[in-house]
Structures are given as C-alpha cells and as structure tokens.
Write a protein that binds this DNA or RNA. Structure first.
Length: 275
DNA sequence: CATCAGGCGAGAC
DNA sequence: GTCTCGCCTGAT
C-alpha cells in the first residue's frame, strides 16, 4: 500500500471525466482500474490517496500514469480571474488529472467513443476485453481482462466486432487494428513528435478524425495543447466564448482546461436533469 | 416515435 | 475547402 497526499487528485473526478473508460467506483471511497495490463485498487479519503500496490510499482507505473508530478494547482492559478466560467469549471473539477494512458488502447477506445455515450462506450470496451483480452488474476485474487493486443483485434473479423456491439465502427476497428498490427502505421515514432505532427499522423487511421485524434493526443501522448472539440465543448464555446477561446493565453495547458470544461458541463447537465 | 450520444468517411459542389 | 448525409445501438 502506498499512500500519498494531494489536494488536486480526485479518483471520482478522474473516473467521471470520461478520459478513462476502465476505471470506476467500487465502494464508498474505493475505486478500481485496469491499465497497463494491471489491476489497481485505490481508496481516497479527502486528500489522502492510497494505492494498493508496492512502492516499486507506484514509482515505476502509477506515479507517471496519474501524472502525480504535475502541479495542477499552479495551472488553475494561471486562469484569468475575470473568466468566471473557467474559474468555476476549474474549481469544480480541480481533482481531474490528465492520465498517461496506452496509445493503442486510446486509439481503439476513442474510435469506439464516436457518436456514442459514455455508458455504452464502457460496455463496448469491456465486451472487447472479455472477448479478446487476456484473462488475468491480480495479486489479491481479483480476475480481470487486459485490453486486447493489436494482434488479437487484427485477428477478429468485422462480423465478430459487429457481434460485440461495435456497430458501424466495426470496420474502423478492423482496419485500424490491422494497419497497426502489420506495421503499416508505426506507433513508436508518435510520442516524440509535436502535437500538430502527431495529430496529422493519427488522421491517417481509418475511423480517426479530428476529435478522436485530439483525444488520443491528449490522453495517450500527453500533448496537453490538444483541445478535443465534441458536441458539448462546441456548445460551451458558442455560449461562453463567442469571440473564441483564448488559446494563446493558455497554450500547452489548453487541453487540461478542456477537461475542466467538459466535466463541468457534464455535471451541470446531470444537475439540471435531476431537478 | 424521434432524437441524441464525446464523429467520421464519402461524395457533391 | 466546405457541406450534407448515412450510420449501429441503447436510453429517454
């Protein structure tokens, strides 16, 4: 067990911010996650976070995965105090962090995410993992499925993927998995590139358009200047930033602010629906 | 029953 | 380059 203290970490907000589809709440203050082929449980009481793993695993994996060395309070402090919408959004989602997730997993996950809702995206991904991922048992004896390898998905037919509930995205997954598995698209070279170049490359993948490419850049390659625009963000931009979002001011932190806005809008919607 | 979900590709112009 | 259209599926 590794316990750390951080005021800008909320396991709940990370679950709900929609960047990670394989982390969820499993108890009052408990959360679980499958990432990097491993299963992790987290308990959080206010700013005290306990990771149920060895110190070595924390240092080598989760410390990076959860972006623990980045000072999110400083980023929030850089927000224009006269921008009351952004101030409120950041205050509300101050425990969100931009995760360092697996590139291949994010490519497939965000292809699935298009024209889809978060609940069903999660279901689709679990379906794929159960059918094509390796079954594993954690140190504590919990059974889980790792995310499928490129080989496993490349060997699935379009019909198989259709049967898994991927719908019209089946052909995208099929072709993208194959072009990656057969080395026609090289994942290795992407990380070193700048945001613009990485995005341009990702757009070559069948089923990856501008929004999905930005999500991959932000959540896997950690290009925090990527600013994914979905239907919700577009609505907010229109309502709150009719003259444009101040990208020049926020530069490489724009993507982090996008997550605060996305989560804030999501929460506001829930609140409105519960009246 | 229509509309909408964290869009995208294809084709028309 | 910009616009329109069709698309799996489940929830509301």
């Amino acid at each position: 067990m590794v316990t750390v203290q951080n005021e800008n970490f909320s396991a709940l907000q990370i679950c709900m911010s929609g960047q990670c589809f394989r982390m969820d709440r499993c108890g009052e203050n408990k959360y679980r996650l499958v990432a990097a082929g491993k299963y992790l449980e987290i308990t959080q009481q206010e700013d005290k976070i306990s990771f149920d793993c060895t110190q070595e695993e924390y240092d080598n994996l989760w410390n990076v995965y959860f972006d623990m060395e980045t000072d999110y309070a400083r980023i929030i402090a850089s927000i224009d105090r006269e921008d009351s919408y952004l101030m409120a959004a950041a205050a509300h989602g101050k425990g969100i962090r931009i995760l360092h997730q697996d590139l291949w997993e994010m490519i497939i996950s965000f292809i699935i995410s298009q024209q889809n809702n978060i609940k069903r995206i999660r279901k689709c991904i679990e379906q794929l993992c159960e059918r094509y991922g390796e079954k594993k048992i954690s140190d504590k004896g919990v059974a889980y499925f790792a995310f499928p390898t490129p080989k496993a998905l490349a060997n699935a037919s379009v019909d198989d993927l259709y049967a898994c509930g991927m719908g019209y995205r089946s052909k995208y997954i099929y072709q993208t998995a194959n072009s990656i598995y057969h080395g026609e698209f090289d994942l290795e070279k992407l990380g070193a590139k700048e945001y613009d170049a990485a995005k341009r490359d990702l757009l070559q993948l069948y089923g990856v358009g501008g929004k999905v490419a930005d999500c991959i850049c932000l959540f896997a390659l950690h290009k925090t200047d990527a600013f994914p625009r979905d239907t919700h963000i577009n609505k907010v931009m229109k309502a709150q930033y009719p003259n444009g979002f101040p990208f020049e001011r926020y530069g490489e932190n724009s993507g982090i602010l996008q997550q605060y806005i996305f989560y804030y809008d999501l929460e506001n919607k829930k609140y409105r629906n519960n009246i």
